[in-house]
Amino acid sequence: MRRLETVGVVGGGLVGSGWAIVFARAGRTVRLFDASAEIRAGALAGIRRSLADMQAFGLVGDVEAIARRISVVDSLAEAVAEADYVQESVFERVDVKAAVSREIGAAIRDDAVVGSSSSGIPASAFTADVPRRERFLVAHPVNPPHLVPLVELVPAPWTDGAILPWLRQAMEELGQVPVVVNREIEGFVLNRLQGALLNEAWALYEAGLASAADIDRTVAHGLGLRWSFMGPFETIDLNAPGGVDDYARRLGPLYHAVAQARRDPRPWSDDLVGRVTRERREALPAADLKARSAWRDRRLMALVAHRRGQPDR
């Protein structure tokens, strides 16, 4: 397969635009398409705003040089026909992804690779009958992908086996952090881990054990500090004098008891969601969500800038 030089991005919303930045800042040529004329019209302006914020934190250099590598095109075929790699980032629904995948599969080169930004739907659910289905897999980012580098690579049963090592290396060259999920599973790895924490957070709130704000504080000012630079296995390996096996002997029974207590998980009821929503809207009015999201991105930029100056070991 060719080196990843030319990219088609299909879907120009928050995730697709973030992907365009990932590719363009690494020197790749990007053609971006969205079915919405309104999104196409505003995509480059939004990308430039994000790049300007990143520049302020020292994360990118010449904003205009990066932006010039991205062109917004008026058809899907124009975006993907000459691409070495296509990143599909359309609405998270099987029928939508299947329709777009069929269109992409019919338009790409035989040796192109197509990654879907699907956050939980496996590629086999929407590529079974698409042309060149062996060229498709999931490449699930964390939002926003230009600030959070993790990418989950998840093949369908029919994905060409040569694609995973090629795409893993390509993502590393782009500055992303790829992980391989060896076979399809609902939610992949990231959302299964996130889901375990979310389900416990909802259950604790429903039981009246803590407010939503205090549960958030527990993660933001406790678990999240360590998790921002190391994962759960390394965390526990360092949290007992004898390492991970010592930790397992000391605290394994506690965690087993906690797991046993949640063997019949409850769905997030409308009443429960409503209560959390009211608490969150008191803390953050709906009109301020967009501004708070921009604040989040700037905090992520500051964290990324800090981590770049720190040794991994």
Rank of each mutant, 00 (worst) to 15 (best):
S269Y: 02
L223A: 13
R275P: 06
G222S: 09
Y205E: 04
R266D: 02
E184R: 11
R266N: 01
R281L: 15
L197K: 06
R262W: 01
G195W: 12
G208K: 15
L254M: 14
L225E: 01
W227Y: 15
R292G: 00
L190I: 14
V258P: 09
D246S: 14
D214K: 14
W202A: 01
N199D: 07
A240W: 06
R250V: 14
R249M: 00
L225P: 07
I185C: 13
G242Q: 06
H221W: 10
P265Q: 00
L238G: 04
N191P: 11
Y247H: 12
P241M: 09
D288S: 08
E234T: 05
N199K: 03
L197Q: 07
S228Y: 02
R292M: 11
R292C: 02
P241C: 06
A259R: 15
A210D: 05
G222F: 05
G208W: 11
L204S: 04
G242H: 08
E184F: 05
V276G: 04
L272T: 13
A257I: 11
D270N: 08
H256Q: 05
H221V: 11
S228K: 06
E186Y: 05
A240D: 07
W227M: 09
A213S: 08
V189A: 10
A286L: 13
N239M: 14
D216V: 15
G224T: 14
L272I: 11
E200Y: 06
A248Y: 12
D271F: 02
W202F: 15
V181Q: 01
A261K: 10
N199H: 10
G243T: 12
I185Q: 13
A201F: 08
R226N: 00
A294Q: 13
H256M: 06
A203C: 00
A248L: 14
R281W: 10
R263L: 07
R192I: 14
Y205Q: 10
G274N: 04
D237N: 15
I236T: 12
R266Y: 00
F188W: 07
L225G: 04
I236K: 06
T277A: 04
S269N: 03
S228L: 08
A291F: 08
F229S: 02
R263H: 05
G231A: 07
V258Q: 11
L198G: 00
A213G: 02
A287Q: 14
E206K: 12
D270R: 14
W227S: 02
R275Q: 09
L254T: 10
I185R: 14
R183M: 08
S293T: 10
N239I: 15
